[in-house]
């Protein structure tokens, strides 16, 4: 099996940095993580060749901060998430682009963590940090042992 973990987000936008924060911890535990930053064309490149992908991203959907959203990317096209960024395209578009190019792994799971603060600055809100620990546990449990 060729699983891959991909983390999105900007560490200088508080809770948007949950992806890079988890990436660092997983790397310390010996897992390989592809950090996509905010360039989603890199997500498409990162998905290519994997047969299972875990995509970590911060979410703002008016749910309580720290809520963990687990989205299995199925065969139906994804609805566009509302774009909060000024980036060229969003996560759902990037995943659909990967599908159109035939590089979307058969199993792709988006782990979205609801954030509280997306303003300039570093560090995570306590609820987000707590949820991030849970995600680390899930991924290490699944992928951490040979």
């Amino acid at each position: 099996m060729r699983p891959r973990v991909l983390a999105l987000g900007n560490p200088y936008r508080q809770d948007d940095g949950v992806g890079p924060w988890i990436a660092r911890r997983l790397r310390e535990a010996g897992l390989e993580v592809c950090e996509v930053g905010d360039d989603l064309t890199r997500l498409v490149e990162g998905l290519a060749g994997a047969d299972e992908a875990w995509v970590i991203e911060a979410v703002a959907s008016s749910q309580p901060p720290g809520t963990l959203h687990v989205l299995e990317v199925g065969s139906a096209p994804l609805a566009a998430f509302e774009r909060l960024s000024s980036h060229t395209f969003g996560l759902s578009e990037a995943l659909e682009l990967a599908r159109a190019l035939g590089v979307l792994p058969p199993r792709t799971v988006v782990l979205g963590i609801e954030g509280r603060c997306f303003g300039s600055g570093e560090g995570l809100s306590p609820e987000v940090a707590q949820s991030a620990e849970k995600v680390i546990g899930i991924l290490l449990g699944r992928l951490g042992h040979p």
């Binding site: 682009l97 159109a100 035939g102």
Partner: peptide
Amino acid sequence: PDAVRLAQDQP
């Protein structure tokens, strides 16, 4: 409408 639809036709 976007590059995704373009990619579906011209991968």
